[in-house]
Amino acid sequence: MSTNQSGGTAPPGKPSSRSHPHEAPPVSSAMLAIILVAVAAALVLGYLFLSKLIDISRQEDCMLAHNKNCAAIQLPNR
């Protein structure tokens, strides 16, 4: 006979709680898709944020060098 956690025996037909530990349920495909979309969005937003920080850093470096033409050049529309 198997014993439960309190030291007694398990009722007939029921397995003891020690022989089958509680396992977490598997991740559903919908939750996996949500996680994948969130990771992809974080990567894209991180790339855009880093790109903006690089532009700001370049402009600050130009200004600190006392250059007069630090603004981005705008091409005329035809």
Rank of each mutant, 00 (worst) to 15 (best):
E60R: 12
P12F: 05
V37A: 14
S17M: 06
G13Y: 00
E60P: 02
S19M: 10
A40V: 05
N4G: 03
H66E: 13
R58Q: 11
V39K: 06
K14W: 01
A30K: 05
N67H: 13
S51V: 12
I35G: 04
R18S: 13
G46M: 07
K14Q: 11
A33D: 03
C70D: 00
G13C: 01
N77T: 09
L36T: 15
L43A: 11
N77A: 14
S2M: 10
H20N: 14
F49Q: 02
G46I: 01
S6G: 06
L45P: 01
R78S: 15
P25I: 00
K52F: 13
A40M: 11
L43D: 01
T9H: 13
K52I: 03
Q59T: 14
K14I: 11
I73G: 04
S6N: 14
L64C: 04
M63S: 06
S19R: 12
V37R: 12
I35H: 08
H22M: 11
I54N: 07
P26T: 01
H22F: 12
Q59V: 13
Q59M: 15
S29Q: 07
L48P: 05
R78C: 13
I73F: 14
S29I: 10
L64D: 06
S2L: 02
G13R: 00
Q74S: 06
N67A: 02
K68C: 02
M1W: 10
A24E: 09
I34C: 09
G13S: 01
Q5H: 13
N69G: 07
H20A: 02
M63Q: 09
P25Y: 07
S28G: 10
G8A: 00
M63R: 09
A24P: 04
P21V: 02
M31C: 14
G7A: 08
N77P: 15
Q5C: 11
V27Y: 00
C62F: 04
S6R: 07
K68F: 08
Y47S: 04
N67L: 09
